[in-house]
């Protein structure tokens, strides 16, 4: 089980508890604004773009090659960018905060 805080593009905080899936599926299940998950989580749509809180970047880890390529030309991309569907929820992520970039 991990508690994840999402900060939506309009500044709302949504706290979600999840024990599986990804940062994308947990957000969709809890109706977090700005995360659409259009491709269902196969790294093809970039509608699940988040910024990982600075304190968490090393624990969450960097984007993979394909993911980084999908992010490269997205609006709002920076070194804290991840695609939510590529970050599996795991117990170590308990307490994580991410900012939803949205489109």
């Amino acid at each position: 089980m991990a508690r994840i805080t999402y900060i939506t593009p309009d500044g709302k905080q949504v706290v979600v508890e999840a024990s599986g899936g990804s940062l994308m599926t947990a957000a969709v299940q809890n109706q977090v604004d700005g995360i659409e998950g259009e491709c269902g989580g196969v790294c093809s749509c970039a509608t699940c773009h988040v910024h990982v809180d600075a304190a968490w970047i090393s624990r969450v880890g960097p984007a993979g090659d394909a993911e980084a390529a999908m992010l490269e030309l997205e609006d709002g991309v920076n070194s804290a960018s991840r695609l939510g569907c590529q970050v599996p929820i795991r117990p170590e992520l308990d307490g994580l905060t991410v900012r939803v970039v949205g489109r």
């Binding site: 790294c43 394909a66 390529a69 999908m70 490269e72 030309l73």
Partner: peptide, 10 residues
Amino acid sequence: NDPRAYVVAS
């Protein structure tokens, strides 16, 4: 297997 080509092309 070339997402970079895909995003630039888009």
